[in-house]
Design a binder for these strands. Sequence first.
DNA 1: CAGTATCCCGGATGATACTG
DNA 2: CAGTATCATCCGGGATACTG
Lengths: 114, 114
Amino acid sequence: MIAKKDLPVCPVATTVGLIGSKWKLLILQQLLKERKRFNELRRSIDGISQKVLTQNLRAMEADGILVRYAYAEVPPRVEYELSELGNSLRPIISEMDSWGVEYLNTLKDMQEAE
Amino acid sequence: MIAKKDLPVCPVATTVGLIGSKWKLLILQQLLKERKRFNELRRSIDGISQKVLTQNLRAMEADGILVRYAYAEVPPRVEYELSELGNSLRPIISEMDSWGVEYLNTLKDMQEAE
DNA sequence: CAGTATCCCGGATGATACTG
DNA sequence: CAGTATCATCCGGGATACTG
């Protein structure tokens, strides 16, 4: 018999399920740089709306990827910081960064060769 | 003045724009293993519909990530293979795989500790 | 400031049928 | 087999207004 823990679970599908979307990857990228406030995060991600940012932050918080710190001040201040789990995703974003750099260089070279 | 090539372009956003979606990442994963036929690919990706698979394959082909080989046979045979550019994305999927393995192990350990 | 609450639209997706 | 075509649907996401 096959035990539950031996069920075929795809690691890549697991990862993709947690952070395999445009906005989560970009939020992750920003928070890997530093802990950030809500609007700071919003401004740093081109094209994201308040609603979508909130939705993704809630989901990532529920998945244990980041931690939300709300301060009872006036005006309110809320900061987001990656958890240990979130930080462990750094190599993925890092590879995406490296690949993007290479890709953009190739594009630039092609333009210069025109 | 700022030249066009000096415009601030984010490498991670570039990468995310090309493959930052659930299905593209999973298609990429499958094709990194081997060249595959359409239905073979379809069966290997849980939950993907024919339409969505076609759409994503077309987009990835247009982006130069994969190559489509259509053979004029009866019945028709179409195979998909990663381009050199597509293959250069391997480290990203590789990191996602490693992370997923670790994550699943952690989950399993937590269950056993119950 | 950092949200929540509504309304609403369009594109993404599923289902189905058809075809080279 | 590997699609394309069409229709119906649904909900992701924008716009706006309001609030602790």
